[in-house]
């Protein structure tokens, strides 16, 4: 059985896998912002090139990446299609084709392709992140990045601990669910029914034992944590500290450079033109 707590992590040894999760998260945010600035086909192509380079460096097979995106791709194609047929051109250009209320314009096709491409870029990189980092790494990275919030008395530690416990309990809960479903199927329960009411009713014999066992687990876990001297964040230290490597800084600088390039491409940046373009 596969370990669900690993998310969709694809184990491999690569620079992308080894990178500091904090840097990966920061780069991801920088990347997402940059994609929003992309406007021309050239800038989309430019970004796509670097995404492909990242995927190549991560040693995750490209098919694997696309496979984990297969549902997104369906939605994406659908959105693109809608954009194409409902585009209303205000420039006065003649439509390329029309059926009833649907008109297809050249600009419409361009906009639709851009929209689809942009969405694709937006989902691609987070997928690469989750394929190359374990949930635990992301959790630690997030906790570290959010640690300044402690000054505002936000219990970052508690959130991180909750996430970590959830991740560690998920596999046994899923296993347990499987077992209960199998036990009830053996007693003739039909989860295969097409009738939605019957289906919901069929879930009760699964959900109740699952709740009962989850509460029992929570109780036991609380006892185990108490017994191991847990008393909240008070006086607590950590064994591991994330350490940034030179390569992490290089990667960050590199992506900063890409962002600057995109801004140059889009805004023909000289002096204040960039700011005015933002509309400030």
């Amino acid at each position: 059985m596969r370990d669900v707590s690993m998310g969709q992590y694809y184990p491999a040894s690569s620079v992308v896998h080894r990178a500091d999760p904090r840097f990966k998260l920061v780069i991801l945010i920088l990347y997402l912002v940059t994609v929003f600035f992309c406007d021309s086909f050239f800038s989309f192509g430019f970004m796509t090139f670097f995404v492909l380079v990242t995927i190549f460096l991560s040693r995750v097979p490209i098919l694997k990446v696309l496979k984990s995106l297969r549902f997104v791709i369906v939605i994406l194609l659908f959105t693109t299609l809608l954009m194409m047929i409902f585009y209303s051109d205000t420039s006065g250009a003649a439509p390329l084709a029309e059926w009833g209320i649907f008109h297809i314009y050249l600009n419409g096709i361009y906009s639709a392709i851009k929209l689809g491409w942009r969405l694709m870029l937006l989902v691609l990189m987070p997928t690469v992140l989750t394929l190359t980092s374990t949930p635990t790494e992301l959790c630690d990275g997030l906790e570290s990045l959010l640690s300044p919030l402690k000054l505002l008395h936000i219990p970052v530690h508690v959130f991180a601990l909750i996430m970590s416990i959830a991740l560690s309990l998920i596999p046994s809960l899923i296993e347990e669910t499987d077992k209960i479903i199998n036990a009830q199927r053996s007693r003739g329960a039909a989860f295969e029914s097409r009738n939605p009411f019957k289906k919901i009713k069929a879930m009760i014999p699964v959900l109740i034992p699952l709740f009962v066992s989850s509460f029992r687990r929570a109780d036991e876990l609380a006892d185990a944590m108490d017994s191991r001297c847990y008393r909240g964040a008070k006086g607590r230290t950590r064994m591991k500290k994330l350490k940034a490597k030179l390569s992490d800084f290089v990667a960050l600088l590199f992506w900063c450079a890409i962002t600057v390039c995109i801004l140059f491409l889009n805004y023909n940046w000289c002096g204040w033109a960039f700011i005015t373009a933002l509309g400030i």
């Binding site: 690993m6 949930p135 416990i165 560690s168 847990y230 607590r236 064994m239």
Partner: peptide, 18 residues
């Protein structure tokens, strides 16, 4: 029901960290 993390050594560290 005694594990608080998904990595063995992190789990063992939980007590001394506390």
């Amino acid at each position: 029901n005694q594990m608080v993390t998904t990595i063995v050594e992190d789990d063992v560290a939980f007590g001394p960290e506390n």
